[in-house]
């Protein structure tokens, strides 16, 4: 299992490096730290779907990395802990925090890899820190949604559903003029600074930030509640 994780971590790093390369040769519409910035709302390019795919590719690999987390604690060593009255909440939270650390490391790695090449992309004058912050928060919400789904359906199915949802959300919000409520329902699109208002300094950013934090809290609470009544095999 540990060796699998090391391989997945290496693949994730490779995907991030490839992303920088693809960004630099594909199009001039990518911004610096483009993975967290996205495209302007009025970006009108026939290949926007493909470019979005390049944009969220690391998310797919991150989901592979965290995939199976619930299986590990409902089928593996967790059993020995649980029958000794080890708190299920504590067991779950340890897993959540461990993967949050992985996720934070992945975002930092993205920043580090992009840093020397950022001069090749469109400059972002404002809201870079805010964009990166909400990017990490939304990514974590997606991972928490993955945990919740895994408590109901197999990990591979959960991954597939999530990736389709992420891509469809980002694509729909990019192409169509959606209102704020629909944007919240399609929350993966909020990981981009161009969509969440961070880059343009819009007041709605504060609302989306609050939504991101609330989503994390809500999904964590739902995971704990479901895990407590989940059969352990």
């Amino acid at each position: 299992m540990k060796r699998d994780k090391k391989i997945l971590a290496a693949v994730l790093a490779l995907v991030i490096v490839t992303q920088v390369y693809v960004f630099s040769i594909t199009s001039s519409i990518y911004s610096e730290n483009g993975f967290a910035i996205g495209f302007p709302e009025d970006a009108n390019n026939p290949k926007i779907g493909l470019y979005l795919m390049y944009m969220i590719a690391p998310v797919l690999f991150l989901l592979f990395f965290t995939s199976g987390s619930m299986y590990e604690i409902t089928h593996g060593y967790g059993k020995i802990l649980i029958i000794r009255n080890y708190s299920k909440t504590r067991l779950l939270m340890k897993k959540v925090l461990k993967n949050a650390g992985v996720l934070l490391s992945a975002v930092l790695l993205q920043c580090l890899v992009f840093w020397p090449f950022n001069h090749l992309f469109l400059p972002v004058k404002n809201g870079m820190v805010q964009s990166l912050l909400l990017y990490a928060i939304i990514l974590h919400a997606i991972v928490l949604l993955q945990y919740l789904l895994e408590l109901f359906i197999p990990a591979q199915t959960a991954n597939l559903i999530l990736f389709i949802y992420c891509f469809a959300s980002c694509y729909a919000v990019q192409i169509f003029d959606v209102n704020d409520w629909l944007k919240i329902a399609l929350f993966p699109s909020l990981m981009f600074g161009m969509q969440n208002g961070a880059v343009n300094g819009e007041a709605i950013y504060g609302v989306y930030l609050a939504v991101g934090v609330c989503l994390n809290l809500l999904l964590t609470a739902l995971c704990i509640r479901k895990f407590k009544t989940t059969d352990i095999f």
Binding site: H75, G76, Y77, K79, I80, I82, I83, R84, N85, K88, F233
Partner: peptide, 28 residues
């Protein structure tokens, strides 16, 4: 939530492979 003092042997009782038997018991 669970019986207060239960010992259980079922399939797939994953123990930690990187430790010795004694260290596994120590951890538990």
């Amino acid at each position: 939530s669970f019986p207060p003092n239960v010992g259980l042997v079922i399939e797939n009782m994953t123990l930690l492979p990187q430790y010795s038997a004694m260290d596994n018991l120590r951890l538990i």
